[in-house]
Simulated assay, not measured.
Amino acid sequence: MHFIWSLIVGGVIGLIAGAITSRGAKMGIISNILAGLIGSAIGEGLLGHWGPQLAGMAILPSIIGAVILVLVVSAIFGRAKN
């Protein structure tokens, strides 16, 4: 059950990161979940585990990490298309 909550919370975090960066329309459900889960690891690694937590993820650092991840991935793949 914890695994399912992690996927749901990861998806919401990825969705928020996509909305903040204006790249959410290009991201699908799987991309949102991956951005949220990986972004959570990045954010918590850089900023720690402060603030409210849900499904074992600190929400604010996770969103910041997901925004960083979405921007970096967009920059890499945006350049590869040109």
Rank of each mutant, 00 (worst) to 15 (best):
A58C: 09
I33V: 13
G14Y: 07
I59R: 01
H49L: 14
I16Q: 09
I4M: 15
I13H: 00
M57V: 06
G36C: 03
T21C: 05
G78W: 02
H49I: 08
G28L: 05
F77N: 00
A25W: 07
L37F: 06
G24L: 06
I29T: 12
H2C: 02
S40L: 02
I8D: 04
L7M: 11
I16Y: 13
V73H: 06
F3H: 13
M57C: 07
I63M: 03
G43A: 00
A66H: 05
S74L: 07
G24C: 08
L71I: 03
I16N: 10
A19T: 15
I8E: 07
I63S: 05
A35Y: 02
I59W: 03
S31N: 08
V70W: 05
K26A: 14
G56V: 02
Q53C: 04
G36W: 00
L54H: 06
L60H: 07
A75V: 05
Q53W: 01
L7H: 04
V72W: 07
I20H: 01
V70H: 07
V67M: 04
L7V: 01
G18N: 00
R23P: 00
G65Y: 01
A35C: 07
L71D: 03
L7I: 14
R23M: 14
L69N: 04
G18E: 00
H2M: 12
